[in-house]
Amino acid sequence: MAKNARQLAEQDQVSQGSSGSSTDVLNISEDPSSWLEEHGNYLYRYAYMRVNSQETAEDLVQEALLAAVRGYKNFERRSSVRTWLVGILKNKIIDYLRRSSRKEKNEILEEDNETLDRHFNRFGVWNRVLPNWASEPNELLERKEFMRAFEGCLRKVPEKTRQAFMLKTFENVETEEVCNILGITSSNLWVLLHRCRLVLRECLEKNWAGLEQ
């Protein structure tokens, strides 16, 4: 059992009320523990990338798998098992972000001069010429070293900033819903996204060797 057991979210993607009898059992050939072997690490990496905490990622994977076990008879097999499990996990992650955003109050949501002053002089002009990246943008996605550097840089971004960026770009969640989940205004959201991109770009410049020579 994970150290911090969490209550399940009230609405699961698959919990739609049981219509089965009390004698319903899971088919032995559809052993849920096989989901752990086949999909556990994938789900874990999916969650870890989004919540940046091993413990939280484990908890969320457990919640998702337990919800899947409970709701398996409602699985209509219109998608693969993995896609279905990821869908459940995604909802669990969003619920987690909604809960944790109420607690996290320390991050600056308004425009902070400190980040911007690092990049621009008093005239609002770049402090220096940004070096060019040697590859075309669409080629970068194929480069493992770039993606590895990107993942490392993303982990260093402050929590709320990273969550905003992740929800908006990874998950393509609508602006209004991102604001709702994180308890912020749309102005706050633009500030967080802008800050995240500035910081990520700067970090990649320092940690990735793919600059134009």
Partner: peptide, 28 residues
């Protein structure tokens, strides 16, 4: 213009995580 191209690339990398696996090796 250069900055904009670079943040577009960053955005593209982020969007690709809807379907791609992590490059960083983490496991349960």
């Amino acid at each position: 213009r250069r900055y904009e191209r670079q943040i577009q690339a960053i955005n593209g990398a982020a969007k690709s995580y809807a379907t791609r696996e992590l490059e960083t090796h983490v496991e349960l």
